[in-house]
């Protein structure tokens, strides 16, 4: 019997619920932690970034209009599906990050738990961040947090799965939609995560994943007038100042890259990451009419 040939996977982008190749037709070589060939991944261009923003904008009314309860359920569902693909993700994390098998299992476990943790915040954040404000008049006065809109995320460069989940889940749990620029040298877990998202109940366009060169694509996202916030967590420090400057053009919310390098993502969920993409709406309502 002849030996079976393995079927290599084409790693593509994830835009608007579909898996297109880059419109530019380009791809790049992804290697493992020991610089051995792993796969070819799609090399996103600025036009892919543009398409991703259009898809994210289109998905925003539906996703932000869904009930908090529903969004929580959807995030929980992502965790369920990740659990089913546990082994695949362990293998990918080992290949991408060079972790030991035991460590990789912990990382994947933590990634799954992180979805659950943020899922729980969906209907609680308004209670923590909202308020009934005392005012000196016959009015009720409420402050309620609302999602800011389309958020561009430069994902952490080192932690390809746990880091990615830790920056993505808090954004979409609020009702924001996201365009994620995956880790430049370790994009494969992000591509596989997008396959999970596509088959979970996350509506098309709520999460869009691009793989490619940060330096090439990030400036277009930071300058894009239809993006409401940028998370620069994974942006190289030397690029961050320029990105922040471009983001100022339409007063985007900006989350700067951590000064002391990429954090250890194994800690607790971070409510400030949720707050980062919220706007406060205050409503006055007359009493007694």
């Amino acid at each position: 019997m002849t030996e079976r040939l393995t079927v290599p996977k084409t790693h593509k982008l994830f835009i608007g619920g579909r898996f297109p190749r880059s419109e530019s037709g380009r791809s790049f070589i992804v290697t493992d932690s020991k610089r051995r060939f792993l796969a070819n991944a799609a090399l996103a261009s600025r036009k892919d970034a543009r398409d991703a923003v259009v898809a994210a904008r289109k998905a925003f009314p539906g996703w932000s209009g869904a009930t908090a309860y529903n969004r929580g359920q959807v995030l929980y569902r992502v965790a369920e599906l990740l659990e089913g693909r546990r082994r695949q993700f362990v293998d990918e994390v080992i290949a991408a990050e060079g972790l030991t098998s035991k460590h990789a299992q912990e990382v994947v476990g933590a990634s799954i738990d992180r979805w659950i943790s943020y899922a729980g915040w969906s209907d609680k954040i308004a209670q923590i961040d909202g308020a009934a404000n005392p005012v000196s008049g016959p009015y009720f006065d409420f402050s309620v947090p609302e999602p800011t809109g389309v958020v561009a995320i430069v994902a952490p460069q080192k932690s390809a799965l746990l880091g990615l989940v830790s920056v993505l889940a808090p954004v979409i749990v609020t009702g924001c939609t996201a365009v994620v620029l995956a880790s430049e040298s370790r994009p494969l877990p992000a591509v596989t995560l997008s396959e999970v998202l596509a088959t979970s109940d996350v509506p098309a366009g709520v999460v869009n994943v691009l793989s490619g060169h940060t330096e090439e694509v990030a400036p277009w996202l930071a300058a894009h007038m239809d993006v409401n916030a940028v998370d620069l967590t994974g942006a190289p420090i030397q690029l961050a100042a320029d990105l922040e400057r471009s983001a100022a053009e339409n007063l985007k919310r900006v989350l700067r890259p951590p000064v002391d390098g990429e954090p250890d993502w194994t800690g607790e969920s971070d409510v400030d990451r949720i707050r980062f993409v919220l706007e406060t709406k205050t409503v006055w309502h007359p009493i007694g009419i």
Binding site: R50, V53, W220, A223, H224, M225, S246, E249, N250
Partner: peptide
Amino acid sequence: TGRYAGPDY
């Protein structure tokens, strides 16, 4: 301008 425009404007 060299940057993508948004419908808000």
